[in-house]
Every structure is written in structure tokens, then in C-alpha cells.
Design a protein around this nucleic acid. Sequence first.
DNA 1: CGAGCACTTGATCTATGTCAACGGTAGTGG
DNA 2: CCACTACCGTTGACATAGATCAAGTGCTCG
Lengths: 189, 189
Amino acid sequence: MPSPHNRPRQARQAAPGAEIHAAGSEGKAWRVSEGVIRFDHVAADGQAAFASLAIAGDIIGCETLLLGCYTFRATALTHCRLDPWPEGGSADNATLLASLSRAQQRAADLVALRGGQASDRVLGLIRLLTDPNGRVVLPTRQDIADITALRFETISRIVKQLERSAVIRPIRLDGVHATRSFALASPAG
Amino acid sequence: MPSPHNRPRQARQAAPGAEIHAAGSEGKAWRVSEGVIRFDHVAADGQAAFASLAIAGDIIGCETLLLGCYTFRATALTHCRLDPWPEGGSADNATLLASLSRAQQRAADLVALRGGQASDRVLGLIRLLTDPNGRVVLPTRQDIADITALRFETISRIVKQLERSAVIRPIRLDGVHATRSFALASPAG
DNA sequence: CGAGCACTTGATCTATGTCAACGGTAGTGG
DNA sequence: CCACTACCGTTGACATAGATCAAGTGCTCG
């Protein structure tokens, strides 16, 4: 077994639907290098409410550096890859500031996904999740519904409508449900 | 005149409705010691969209430490007092982490204010803004509407209803509109 | 005294929620 | 291979919370 001090912690993978960490559990911070993660606030009575979202590039679990344990439950919405963070040593000031700016930007994005016309919200989320090549792997209809504060039937209707109006085009990706991988027609708004 | 190095920068005040800083303008970071601040994302065409909220205790404008200028427009919703931040010298690691945790918590709060029953959202915001003595100074109906993604007529009806059902009780505070200062009946619902 | 703004309230409309039925696919076990 | 179950997604019919439109009040400021 290699000695711990000269080898970084292993990267982690998570399958869609898998819990990455529980609320209140101990652990470290990670950088999301691939996939989409949902955070839920878990109340004392066990009720879970959607709280936030992390996508590729985001840092998750920063609060463990301060508190030692995670504030929210984290669940993988698509296949995820996580790298230990910070890479070796401790986080420097500039990196933390960058995380903070990014977190505020993400919060504003989330807020925008929960107001206005239903179809705009869903499209907003799709844009947020689309990679630079114009491809998206969507979460389940139910997860999209939780994020946008709509109902899964409404999401289903809207996604189908976007498909029919050729805003998105279904594509076939290995290992993903056929109803969840799309190419986005209009690259930018 | 005292020398600058042994005196902090002056605290700032802002009246309700006043712009604290414009999006993209240069400036520093502040700690909100009193009041409520609204952030708006300002698009290229001048369209403003509600983005986030800061209340007493929050740090605003952290991103200036990294970018030099503000990302969002900030507007005072109630009378605000701001202290320069960090107090003397530069921000340390632990303080930044605390800001980050707080920002994430605030984001989750905001998300919660934009989903579910209209009356619960308004009550949620009222609770968020209530001070430890059970008093609130509310923003205008229109600002509450922007925050909760509802319409001001709906807010008006809900606030009146909360008043009629004695969940909140109007109180008279100097220098505040009579329709905006309340005492909250149930301290922790 | 008039203008402007914030708020209230009523009447009506509609986007989305709700309920219900059904289809496809993956997994499991015979 | 089939039978069975468990999800997830789709679609229709209908209900309703909240939006929209409209009118009017009261306050503050000049």
C-alpha cells in the first residue's frame, strides 16, 4: 500500500441517483470534474427539500474545512467524477475567493430557474447543463421538477415540446437513458 | 486629522431604495451590520433580474477582492448600515470559509422562498428578515414580489391576510411606512 | 392642491397543478 | 426464453392558485 503522504486521495465516481454524502456526515471537500450534483436540505423530521446545484468546475463541501461535516445531502443526478480538493496542502486565499464568486453566481442562476415562464425555466436549466459541444445529459424529469419548482408532468410536456419544436434533438449516448441525452440546437439564446 | 492606518474606513449608510453599487463598478467589500440588500443581475440590454439577497451579518462584494468590481447591482431595501470589510488588513482563510458557508446557506434559503405555496414563501421571507426581538421592517410589496417570484397584488393580499389572522401585527416605527413594520406573533413556527 | 407612488380590493382569466391511465425499459428470478 | 415488478416517462381531462386587469384609497412631497 502506498504511503498516504506522497499520493493524493483517490478521485471518486458516483452513478446517477447515488448519494455522495449525507447531511451532517463527516468528510472533505471535492471538485466536481464531471456531472451534476443536487443538494438537499434535510430537516429534523427527515423531510428533504432541494437546496442547490453543483456542476462541473464547482467545489463542493467547502464547509467541511470549517465545520468538519457536510451541511446538505448531496446526490448525483448524472454520472459524476470528483477530485479531492484542494489539490495537496490547503486552499489559498485566491482559490477561496474564486469559489465564493462562483457560488454567488450559481445562486443567481438557481434563482432565475425558479421564476418566470415554465418553459423558460426548463430551457434555462438545459442551457446551464449543456457542455461546450452542445450536448446535455439531463437529470430525471422529477429532478428537473425539483430544481425548477414545477411538476414532473409539466417537465415532461415541456421537454417533449422542445423536442417537437426542434430546440433540442435526442441523441444516443452509451449508458444513458434514451430520454435524457440531447443536443441543443440554438447554441446561445 | 487622524492617520489612516489606525482608523478604519468610514461606515456607510443607505436609505431604502438607494443604489449601493452598480453592476460592474469598482469598489470594495462590506459587512452588512443592519438592513436588507437586494442584488440584481443587470443584462447587457439593461434588463434587471433579481439575483440574491443579503441581510445583517452577510459580507457583500467579496468578488471585488478577486475581480476589482461588483458582479451585481446592489440596492438597499430597508435602511442599511455597512462596515468596511475585512476590518483592517486582508481577509484570512477562516473568514473566507465562513463567508462561503454562509453564502451557500443563503442560496438555499432563497431557493426555498421561490417554491411552494405563495403564503409560505412570504412567511418564509418575513421569518428570514425578523430580528431576534420579533420585529420586521419589510421591503415594499413589489420587492417582496421580486424575491418570491410572485406579483405585488398577491403579496398585498397575503400580507393583509397574515395581519387579519394575527400572524403578524402592525407596529409603529419611526421613519418607516406604516404598512411595513410588523411584530411577528409566532417566534419560531 | 395636484402629481406620483405604494397599497388595497374586486372580477376574471389562464398557466400550471392534480389525478388518472397507460407504455416502455431494465432488472430479477423462474 | 418468459413473467413479473419497479421505475420512469407520456398523455388526457379537469381543477385551481395565482396572474392579470381595473378601480379606488391614502400618503408624501413640491
